[in-house]
Write a protein that binds this DNA or RNA. Structure first.
Lengths: 276, 276
DNA sequence: TAGTGGTCTAGACCACATA
DNA sequence: ATGTGGTCTAGACCACTAC
């Protein structure tokens, strides 16, 4: 796991690298000899370096990254090694390959599969309206993190957070009520207006306005009963069973950046999941 | 998509194959020249051939398959091409690589991550008891498929099916009530006794007793209200919100082999899902 | 010691996109 | 025509497992 500190560098001085020449071991002169080597394959180290450039914002969502050949030169490894690193980043949905065009930083915007993290689908005709037609922001306020919210976001109790509450509707029928908590430090200037004016997925807004890219998320799903407040916002009866979907979304370094609790009506829709 | 009929064969006669010699195109004599070639990369064709051997039962769950080198010889391609085919099958969880030992057919038994398709976890201490401690078979009967069941299993209405109903409990607390429909033709001889005697995951039993390996599944999740019958079986109150989890499980050829409807209590547990 | 998968390189050619 | 990713091969060496 542990990457050898600069076993692979970006090598401003030509040939400043440590590691294998041709054959990853053929060269007799230089070996990865270290005290008690925490070992990691070259392509994993390259993956780490690419990841670092993604985090640092060197390549932004939607950008093309340098070609495999260029990266190979920059990191002083073979193109095949860069390829394997990119392969893994592509299967993690951090990068997207496009034949003949290049490799791109994945984004929540423009991706034709919009609302990538939204799994609530209509019961009939799986291919109809992708995203929710209407989004209504109910409120957006600054407050101090509760112990629970702080824990989930990796903050300290009392740290500033934003709380956004909104309702999503499909074909004028409300279906989702969401409470969203965001760390105040990373979302400075977030307002209800910004959110209301925006079309498209909220995660795309996060990328363009705050430079925060959500990479993966974990959801905990329960069945709950609608209390009167919730029922009135969702236009259903109190006591109606709802799906409670609690999501923690992470940015590049497995850093939690959003806590979201959704309540889903499932009378005409369902949460779809694939197992393998 | 469409595989060239026997562009790659298993080549009993040496050199009976069609395709690229060294370099996949270097050789001037033989080309994949076909009328209107439905094209597919070599490694995809190899993947298909391996898949066929898995379906046919040539290699059974838990078996070692031939080494990459042997397969390369058998299919008359390079080891690297076989490797790429196996890579994809491994990421699909059909095969499992074990360094130094070989590549194995994945199985629901022995896999240390047992109950691979069960996503209901305790709210606290994510690492406690993996599988349900107690399983109680309530009934197992033969009947004729309803239109709905037939549709989901790819059968005709009225075809024979088994219906199994069981309750799973954790630490003596019932948590899941499941109805399971199985095509009668593929599960001949299934009895309540067989099911009751068995320890371990039901999918492991399917492999060992019926030669049916479940490869992937799709779930549709809703929130529902417990009716009195269900409530009494789960030891909860009528009206309690429950997770309804409707699963279709598929065997090798995307052939549906099981329909399952589970009702999950989520007062102390949750359905966990990872998004990426 | 031998056999397996794992890593790394090198080079050739193909398919696709753009200019 | 050029440059990109995609496929295929070949060979070397490493790391792990078993005998």
């Amino acid at each position: 796991m542990a990457t050898l500190p600069s076993q692979v560098t970006e090598a401003s001085p030509p040939d400043a690298r440590f590691a294998p020449g041709p054959g990853a071991s053929a060269g007799g002169e230089s070996a990865p000899a270290q005290g008690a080597p925490a070992f990691s394959p070259l392509y994993q180290q390259i993956k780490g370096l690419i990841l670092r450039s993604l985090q640092s914002g060197e390549w932004k969502p939607g950008d093309v990254i340098p070609s495999e050949f260029d990266l190979a030169a920059r990191f002083r490894v073979s193109q095949g090694t860069v390829r394997k690193a990119i392969d893994e980043l592509a299967t993690d949905n951090l990068l997207v390959r496009r034949q003949g065009k290049g490799t791109f930083v994945a984004t929540h915007a423009e991706q034709h599969i919009q609302y990538r993290f939204l799994r609530l689908l209509p019961d009939t005709g799986d291919l109809d309206g992708q995203g929710p037609a209407e989004r209504r922001i109910i409120e957006c306020k600054r407050l101090r993190a509760s112990a629970e919210v702080a824990r989930q976001l990796g903050l300290r109790t009392g740290d500033p957070v934003f709380l956004v509450r909104r309702v999503l509707a499909f074909a004028a029928v409300p279906a989702i009520l969401e409470d969203i908590w965001l760390p105040g430090s990373r979302f400075k200037g977030l307002t209800q207006e910004t959110l209301a004016e925006d079309k498209g997925p909220m995660y795309a807004l996060f990328e363009s306005q705050f430079g925060v890219r959500m990479v993966r998320a974990v959801e905990k799903i329960k069945a709950v009963s609608a209390d009167p407040d919730v029922a009135s916002l969702l236009g259903s009866q109190p006591g109606t069973p709802l799906l409670s979907v609690e999501r923690v979304a992470y940015t590049y370094n497995d850093e939690p950046m959003e806590l979201r609790r959704g309540l889903y009506r499932t009378d005409n829709r369902h949460y779809r999941n694939e197992l393998s």
